[in-house]
Design a protein around this nucleic acid. Structure first.
Lengths: 150, 150
DNA sequence: AATAAATAAGACAAAATACTCTTAAATATT
DNA sequence: AATATTTAAGAGTATTTTGTCTTATTTATT
């Protein structure tokens, strides 16, 4: 499993927000129902993203959550690091502490390559790119197969 | 985290065995001490690999475990699938069930590419290759930085 | 036959992750 | 001011993963 479940939920929520007409706050409850994610659990994840300055929340009626910046300025990498931390891109494939600093493990080089391609993928892709693609091609963002409208 | 801890332990043990003069059974206790992995936990993992016909065990004095086939005929992929299952190579990056069969998620294409490069890496690499590399270059297989001898 | 060395198997415990529930705080509306 | 709507926070539960411990079984050696 590449990403934790929390991280995957965070990505889906981010894409949901990036697909909305931006500016206004979206209630977490609405989003949790659309995306089929437990409301309280999603709230916690979004709090992490807010703490990382990727989202902003507002309490009270008409409150909710929104992206802190245009989706074009937020990469998938930033979401992943905010939730799962940087370990995916730093850890040894064989879990050996200090691998690479002095001695490396036998998988070091090949894993560095593969890790780079994962890094590239996450770094180069913005929320807006994927949101646009999802809208244009009517792709899936929910378990049921819908995007943000249905 | 790409691979589970069990899987990483399984890979390290496999590389340890592939680095030995082949043929004889290696006691699990010895291996667990060298690799700094809990003996009973490692035993369980090796049982999974035995069940997958990747290893063979023998009870009693002079017993232990060994590769069921030459290390050159066992890829990292086989170890990974035996322990973690095929999910890494089949699952949707956003965890959406049925992604790809009818509708795809917005990450589908890019994840398919990255996944392929992971697949390639694991499929193309054999235990013997890495064991040889480890011996030749005196690389790290233990937390302390040693290979199979020290 | 007895003993010792090894894996097999299963119960158990601890830790991490995933998820739920309750109460508090903020804010708009009436 | 009162009420309703929303996030914040923290306690609590469930599940999965990781790790430990005990007992049984197999087999070589004496």
């Amino acid at each position: 499993m590449l990403l934790s479940k929390s991280c995957v939920y965070g990505l889906r929520a981010s894409l949901y927000l990036a697909s909305q007409d931006n500016g206004e706050y979206i209630p977490i409850r609405q989003m949790s129902e659309k995306l089929n994610i437990s409301f309280h659990f999603l709230t916690k994840i979004l709090q992490e993203l807010s703490a990382a300055d990727l989202m902003e929340s507002y309490k009270g009626p008409n409150g909710g959550i929104k992206l802190a910046r245009p989706g074009a300025d937020i990469s998938l990498m930033q979401i992943v690091i905010a939730i799962d931390g940087p370990e995916l891109l730093t850890e040894c494939a064989l879990g050996l502490p200090g691998c690479g600093v002095e001695k490396s493990c036998p998988m070091h080089d090949m894993w560095a390559e593969t890790r780079d391609s994962i890094h590239q993928m996450l770094e180069m892709t913005t929320l807006t790119q994927l949101a646009q693609k999802g809208k244009d091609m009517n792709l899936r963002l929910t378990p049921e197969g819908g995007f943000i409208w249905d």
